[in-house]
Design a protein around this nucleic acid. Structure first.
Lengths: 232, 232
DNA sequence: CGGGATCCAGTTCGATACTG
DNA sequence: CAGTATCGAACTGGATCCCG
């Protein structure tokens, strides 16, 4: 099957041969979102086996979508970098995601909860602008989750990438967010808001009141949150 | 594998679960292009087994993308009709196709020649506006193709669907087009033009001179022909 | 002819373990 | 950190057959 694929000259078919194999679209989303290291990519597609991830990356490289390039600051390691054709896949990912947000029912999506994925996405989209310009630590607690996936910390420092930990980082916590994973995911997806859920008592904020009030602002939502759902 | 798929709440992943299984994107392209009958769909995805086509249509129905509906004029038969979510996949198909047209090299595409597919697509996009308002028959001959795929006829009648035959329809032919399949496909894809190929002697037009002159106009090109290629 | 169902062989994928 | 190795399970494609 590897050799004879759709055998259609149509560009949709030619593109689908590369893009519409299992996991590829999700992997491309990770790449477009900015991950370049093998293990960072793994965090974005945790259920994909490393074997298959490696294979898919090889296929994307062969298709000219990614290229191996030294990781910034670590010249010894090669990461996976999008080429120009690869970056140009952003509209494809966007179209797929917008369609999904609009037409896939919320219930099945919220059946696929994963705190690691959620926190990894939140880490990426967090907007420090409305936060104080000092190191800020936000703790998330999901009491409905098993012990090892229950506690997470986001560490925001001016002029640096946001850090995500799943083990106590040892710093003072500025804001503590306690909620169930489903609720936090729904907020992230734009299906509800911090205020609504706080008012309903499904989300508790403890600590810096200013930080608590601004949560909806610094919490960057999913890139697709702006698209209204039309179903379920 | 059928039950546990990506297990990600991300809309890209939820959409990809339905759209990015093998053949599905190509099938959706056919549906978006307007085919509704099982056997019309087959002509658009000739290398897909009927078993798999049937299965995929069932999945699309379960996903709310198509619905069974009586075929116009044939109430006894049920066709596959796009629902509103299904019609809303047009931007996704468009994004994928535009990317393919822009970034997939021409050479591999032109290695997937198929006269049946090409003629089926041409039938669909032919624009009768610049043609005389009477029944017009155009014959295509591909001398490089095996006997049974060599001759094709498009029959254009005012106020009717364009008809495609692969057996002599018995009507007078108004224009005869003789070329190789690769050349005709490249024209259809917007990689070259009727005039260029005629000048190079790779395409011969015999019959009604007006019809011949206007060929580039009535020959509707691929929906992606307007996107310039950036590679090979 | 339209619209499938069945069966079989060949691939691909997922889970887990392991290595440089 | 960055991948390979392995093996059973699931999926795909092709051929064939069926039914109204």
């Amino acid at each position: 099957m590897a050799k004879d694929r759709y055998r259609q000259f149509c560009p949709v078919a030619m593109a689908a041969e590369v893009l519409c194999t299992r996991w590829t679209m999700v992997l491309v989303r990770e790449l477009v979102a900015g991950s370049t290291r093998f293990n960072d990519l793994r965090r974005g597609v945790p259920r994909m086996s490393p074997t298959l991830l490696s294979k898919r990356l090889g296929e994307l490289e062969a298709a000219g979508i990614v290229r191996r390039a030294p990781i910034e600051g670590e010249p010894a390691h090669l990461g996976y970098e999008l080429t120009e054709p690869g970056r140009d896949l952003a509209p494809v990912v966007e179209a797929v995601g917008m369609w999904g947000q609009k037409w896939v029912e919320a219930e099945p999506s919220l059946g696929n909860l994963d705190p690691g994925l959620l926190m990894w996405d939140m880490r990426r989209n967090l907007d420090p602008t409305p936060m104080p310009e000092i190191k800020t630590v936000i703790a998330f607690r999901y009491p409905d989750q098993p012990e090892e996936r229950r506690h997470w910390w986001l560490i925001v420092e001016p002029e640096a990438e946001v850090d995500l930990c799943s083990i106590e980082p040892g710093f003072d916590v500025d804001l503590d967010v306690e909620t169930d994973l489903r609720c936090m995911t729904a907020i992230w997806m734009g299906l509800t808001t911090v205020r609504k859920e706080a008012d309903r008592g499904r989300l508790a904020l403890t600590g810096d009141p200013g930080l608590a009030r601004a949560m909806q602002d610094w919490l960057g939502l999913s890139p697709f949150a702006s698209q209204e759902k039309r179903v379920g």
